[in-house]
Design a binder for these strands. Structure first.
Lengths: 206, 206
DNA sequence: CATGAATATTTCCGATAGGAAAGTTTCCGA
DNA sequence: TCGGAAACTTTCCTATCGGAAATATTCATG
């Protein structure tokens, strides 16, 4: 299957963003092309062309660029978007970002889910003896941390037997695995969920 | 300045690791080269060569590989080390990884901090009216989420005025900013802290 | 063993990355 | 406005990437 046209467009756009990101990053650090070239060990012209999207760098050049820029290689691949500012601090009093309802689950986002922020903490309440979503399991990219704040919770996991957690116990899992929470008692259960930032692309089955 | 010899060796090694990582990732997902090629839109031979480190992929190919593998592009650049397995699930009963003591703070890691895992959740108790660490603030790469499980906590932040959080309130901040927790009441305070995985490299000043 | 089907590798060649050096632009200070 | 230095871009050429197709390998089944 050849890539769809829109995918190719995405790819072009992605590559263009990478190019400008590289230039912005360098300029934000107040480095010249030459400095980056020397520190990283690549040609000046190469950097010039890469930053203007006239050339698609190979793995080696990315590694050298990262060294030249003084950043971790992986950092080059984090998209911008709305960003959590370096040095940023956010306090969450309760209910600031509103309460959301699904069938048997009420939750609030403790902080807005902006890009660049690595975690998305949520706090929620499960109705007594009810599953969070009746029809099917949830699955998405990233990892998930669940802490039972109050009550007893049953976690259904795709391809595994259920896990029951008491107050104070927690679970850490790859959220690509289908999952579903339910209160395992005749009272509401309160939980804290922290997800790593959702990826824009659809999740892949492992 | 040309790259030092050992840097070149690092780069070779890094590229080799990338190659095997790509192969491992594909095999872990049970995908054939052909499937990845079709879904991503690249040639079979290209993938074969990349995975055996006979070719250094360009940005475009990385983007397509990521799509073919069904992972986020940035994910390809996370080094292995001890890895949180794809699809992994870990349950934390209490005290499994031992309790750690600093001056006025007792905490436990809820899950081991292996590489590839994006979050490091910890639960701790602050002594009444005492600061976590008397001498100086803590600062490290990544982001940090603090939830007050019980009590009232004062957070000292470098270059900002203190933040006081009540039970159920939380704080999210760039943990490069110096920080220090303290109980703000005459009783111990219980907190949950989730850090993003510590980076091995020192953070770069922007 | 044979046979075939599925998967991976090799070969070959056109397209493109990437470096050296020359050329251009920008931005001062006199 | 004239050097002239610093920063960036272009040019040109070789090395390498990357795809199509041929070849090899692996693996199940009789």
């Amino acid at each position: 299957m050849a890539p769809r046209n829109e995918d190719i467009l995405d790819e072009q756009a992605s590559r263009a963003r990478m190019a400008t990101r590289l230039r912005n990053l360098r300029e934000a650090k107040g480095l010249t092309i030459q400095t980056v070239a020397e520190r990283g060990g690549l040609a000046i012209s190469t950097i010039s062309k890469i930053e203007r999207n006239l050339m698609a760098p190979t793995y080696d050049r990315f590694a050298r660029l990262a060294r030249g820029l003084g950043v971790d290689l992986a950092e080059l691949f984090v998209e911008d978007g709305t960003r959590f500012e370096p040095g940023g601090v956010a306090v969450a009093r309760r209910g600031e970002y509103g309460y959301h309802e699904t069938e048997n689950y009420t939750y609030e986002m403790l902080f807005p889910a902006v890009r660049g922020k690595r975690m998305v903490p949520m706090m929620g309440t499960l109705k007594p003896r009810e599953r969070m979503q009746v029809d099917r399991m949830v699955s998405h990219a990233g990892e998930e941390f669940l802490l039972v704040l109050d009550g007893r919770v049953r976690v259904e996991l795709d391809g595994m037997e259920d896990v029951v957690l008491d107050t104070g116990e927690s679970l850490y899992f790859d959220s690509a695995r289908g999952h579903l929470y339910a209160s395992a008692q005749d009272a509401p259960a309160r939980i804290l969920v922290v997800c790593t930032e959702f990826d824009s692309d659809e999740p892949e089955r492992g």
